[in-house]
Nucleic acid binder design. Structure first.
Length: 828
RNA sequence: GCCGCUGUGGCGGAAUUGGCAGACGCACUUGACUCAAAAUCAAGCGCCUUUGCGGGCGUGCCGGUUCGACUCCGGCCAGCGGCACCA
């Protein structure tokens, strides 16, 4: 039944069809089995899979298939993150409707995914741009709205001129749009936000609850959230009868304050400008600062500029007058948007004060030397002892931090406060291809939610895509106009859509109950499957998707929909696929398309190479001859099994372990060592590369056995062939299925079998080669019984002729014997 | 500037608890098979030195701990990635 030669294409097509017909990967809740939820980040349907996808999904597939064979009920779904700009650009540039473009791409990519032989339960597919999915995205918006977590507010937001839309903070990289790489600038607009900052503290704290995440991802999230503890207090501005609040993490330096700085955006600026004798000059300066690009303005290397406003405020502790300056180096949207200036203990303030000749007061002295103001060239930012600080003098600055905070709180000038770098998540987009925001604006009732029974608000198709800076949805008359659900008056719809990252913040929950039309998912279904046990994807989502999803889940938990705190228990971030030292890209011309590899070698070779070439977290260097090597290995497996097929056909399924000869024992040892290695590498470490190399060693042992034997032990050969196929099955699912049917059992699937167990006793060898060292240098080798004791080892080592002559008349000071490994003789 | 990761043969990588550095594969060399080539099978393959046996050196660099260090400690260097005027 099996062919003599390995023909990947026919085999792969055949078994893909077989799995589909037999629903091999369909999964239902089964409380009798432990569950495991294995998930790979779903793709954006750009049209074609790239090698990064192949790597991501090959890793996930091995884990899913392995865990299935280990007895888990494995949930392994796939879908498409299918809203977003590229579909809309296709419409603008080529006149293709976004829906058509997207669905065709999904079709093509689904075909490619199926060609890879991935063990997905396609019955659970989730496609975010389909109404049966985005209905629930809209529903979640309403849930957040009702919980006070979705709010429309006017603020300074990131705007991309190229994409004609606003962007979330997380979507601005290096001052540029994450998607089109054009420069982003700030705009004052009224937009919808999700209040992720309400969860800032928990998002930070709960990183402790996910030890299964890579440290670096957690560090990135920690930095992004940017928690800091400090003091917020106010300076009185008598001339305006106002208070000017500032935030500091260094309350200990408060007596060193010699100025206060505000950015042009600060509301107090306008009050100081009106009627100011230098109004024109100051306004010109403010405009100049406002017009510098954000990247330039927020770069720490930019020159610090400022102008004195002519206004002073009063220091809350000393009562001294302090000048108020307008500058370019304060961020309006962090803290209170105003900062106290301490030139002696903050490097930025030092630069500023030096440039404008503002006085400096030293308030901290280092413990080991004495600083003199006139000798200093920069601020002293380290710890020390308080000076020039009245009653705080003599304290360490650490003590002064709390003493000053206490004092400020006592006199009622301010309070301790925690601040975050994290900003609220801007979720509205002035784009067409996204889930509509289910809000209606009524002249009488204001903002009104679309009633739940009217969801989904469907995307209209009669729109103009090149509407410029307003949402294309505003160009559809049929969409725009509606009746107020509360009072029936003529009303209009919100024309912005939601950020696609919102759609992808809950898709892993939908997979647990994908066909539900009463709710986004049933609590019971999710209680069985959730949370995701193993999540696999690219590091580029370290902040964006992985932070939003964590936030989403916490809100759903508070709403009683789920009973756990974190969506992804374990996370594996796979490295990039590179070639010739660089990321594969069209412009470099080093792209290898999965389709050409599949055509030339088939899916099994592509999968095997990608898993063998590097450990999953590291970069993978694509090598054409390496692929060739993987193909060769599969052929080698094929030939050795072809060679043994008649022995296997005898179906001798047992043998007497006590009656084995040396060659038999060696093969049996290789088999059991390989089972152990592959099991541990896949289960505990995801070291697929070393798992595969041990399988290569096993195959090499099968070749050695072939040449070293007159008569095969049929039982041992049967066991070896069978177990080899089982061990290989998660990596190369098609060829193992073919061989399984061909030589082991034509009536069952290799993928329905249990993972093989190893026999510890079979790993033992009778004799081992140990190393003889003198002063740590290898000076000889000796074969000894493997259970030889320390004393015996010492004895045989000292009896060795070569060792004896090398010791000569030196004195043996010490002998270290490690059974099974070495004897080290220390000679003087 | 701050934080993180990575440095091992010609190349990808292995060494899981401090115990033979270089598993496995790629490339290369040789042999068998062949009229020949490819494929396959078998053997060799860190560097220097030696006819050979052997000897010396070797995991980015410098030092330390140890009988013994790719592995632990201290100090550097290089490359990559993230954050970056967050007060």
């Amino acid at each position: 039944m099996m062919e003599e030669k390995y023909a990947p294409h026919a085999i792969e097509k055949k078994w893909q069809q077989y799995w589909e017909e037999h629903d091999t990967f369909k999964r239902e809740i089964d409380t009798a089995k432990p569950k495991s939820y294995v998930l790979e980040m779903f793709p954006y349907p750009s049209g074609n899979l790239h090698m990064g996808h192949v790597r991501n999904y090959s890793i996930g597939d091995v884990v899913a298939r392995f865990r299935t064979m280990r007895g888990f009920n494995v949930l392994h779904p796939m879908g498409f993150d299918s809203f977003g700009m590229p579909a809309e650009n296709a419409a603008i540039e080529h006149g293709i409707p976004p829906k058509k473009w997207t669905l065709e791409n999904i079709e093509n990519m689904t075909r490619q995914l199926k060609q890879l032989g991935l063990s997905y339960d396609w019955n659970r597919e989730a496609i975010t741009c389909k109404p049966d999915y985005y209905k629930w995205t809209e529903w979640f918006f309403e849930l957040f709205y009702k919980r006070g977590l979705a709010v429309k507010k006017n603020s300074s937001v990131n705007w991309c001129d190229h994409c004609n839309t606003v962007l979330a903070n997380e979507q601005v990289e290096d001052g540029k749009c994450w998607r089109c790489k054009h420069e982003v600038h700030k705009k004052q607009l009224s937009q919808w936000f999700f209040k992720i900052t309400d969860y800032a503290d928990e998002l930070l704290k709960d990183l402790e609850k996910i030890p299964g995440w890579p440290e670096r991802v957690k560090v990135m999230q920690e930095n992004w959230i940017g928690r800091s503890e400090g003091l917020e207090f106010s300076f009185d501005v008598p001339a305006l009868n106002e208070k000017l609040p500032v935030y500091t993490t260094r309350p200990d330096t408060i007596q060193g304050v010699t100025f206060v700085v505000v950015p042009p955006e600060h509301p107090i600026v306008e009050k100081m400008l009106q009627g100011n004798p230098r109004e024109a000059e100051l306004r010109e300066f403010c405009d100049k600062v406002r017009n510098t690009s954000d990247i330039e303005r927020t770069s720490s290397t930019s020159e610090k500029l400022g102008m004195y406003t002519g206004f002073d405020c009063v220091h809350p502790l000393t009562g001294h007058k302090v000048q108020i300056w307008i500058t370019n180096y304060v961020l309006f949207d962090y803290g209170t948007g105003a900062v106290m200036g301490v030139p002696t203990h903050d490097s930025r303030d030092w630069q500023f004060a030096t440039k404008y000749n503002i006085p400096k007061i030293l308030v901290i002295q280092p413990k080991d030397k004495e600083l003199k103001l006139e000798d200093m060239t920069d601020a002293y930012e380290e710890d020390g002892i308080m000076v020039n600080s009245g009653k705080f003098d003599g304290m360490t600055n650490i003590e002064a931090m709390s003493a000053v905070s206490d004092e400020i709180e006592r006199i009622g000038a301010g309070k301790r406060r925690v601040n975050y770098r994290l900003r609220d998540w801007l979720i509205s987009r002035q784009r067409y291809w996204g889930a509509p925001i289910p809000i209606i604006y009524c002249p009488n009732c204001g903002e009104v939610l679309v009633p739940e029974e009217d969801l989904p608000v469907l995307l209209p198709e009669d729109v103009k895509f090149d509407a410029g800076a307003k949402s294309p949805l505003a160009t559809s008359e049929s969409f725009l106009h509606c009746k107020c659900p509360k009072c029936g008056a003529d009303a209009t719809r919100e024309t912005d859509t939601m950020d696609t990252f919102l759609c992808s913040s809950w898709y892993f929950l939908r997979y647990t109950d994908p066909k539900n039309d009463k709710a986004p998912f049933a609590k019971e279904a999710n209680a069985y499957w959730g949370p995701v046990d193993q999540y696999i994807g690219g590091i580029e989502h370290a902040i964006l998707h992985l932070l939003y999803s964590r936030f989403f889940l916490k809100v759903l938990r508070d709403a009683g929909m789920v009973d756990y705190d974190e969506p992804f228990t374990n996370l594996l971030t796979q490295g990039m696929v590179i070639k010739d030292g660089a990321k594969m890209s069209k412009s470099l011309g080093n792209v290898v398309s999965p389709e050409e590899i599949l055509e030339k070698y088939g899916a099994d070779t592509a999968r095997l190479f990608i898993l063998f070439a590097a450990p999953p977290e590291r970069e993978l260097d694509w090598s054409d001859s390496g692929v060739e090597g993987s193909f060769r290995f599969i052929n080698r497996v094929w030939r050795i099994i072809w060679h043994y097929k008649d022995v296997v056909a005898q179906k001798v399924t047992s043998y007497d372990a006590a009656g084995l000869d040396e060659a038999d024992k060696e093969l049996r040892r290789a088999l059991n060592a390989s089972i152990k290695k592959v099991t541990e590498d896949v289960e505990q470490r995801f070291n697929f590369n070393t798992a595969i190399s041990s399988l290569m060693e096993l195959v090499n042992a099968m070749y050695a056995y072939k040449d070293g034997k007159q008569e095969y032990n049929a039982g041992l050969v049967y066991e070896t062939v069978k177990d080899l196929l089982l061990l290989l099955a998660p990596f190369v699912p098609h060829v193992t299925e073919e061989l399984w049917h061909g030589v082991i059992d034509e009536n069952t699937s290799v993928h329905d079998q249990s993972w093989p167990a190893y026999d510890e006793a079979a790993l033992k060898v009778d004799n081992v080669e140990i190393v003889l060292q003198i002063n740590g240098k290898v000076r000889g080798r000796l074969v000894v019984p493997s259970e030889a004791s320390r004393e015996e080892l010492e004895k045989v080592a000292l009896a060795d002729e070569r060792i004896k002559s090398l010791i000569g008349d030196g004195t043996v000071r010490k002998i270290i014997a490690v059974p099974g490994r070495l004897v080290n003789i220390v000679v003087k």
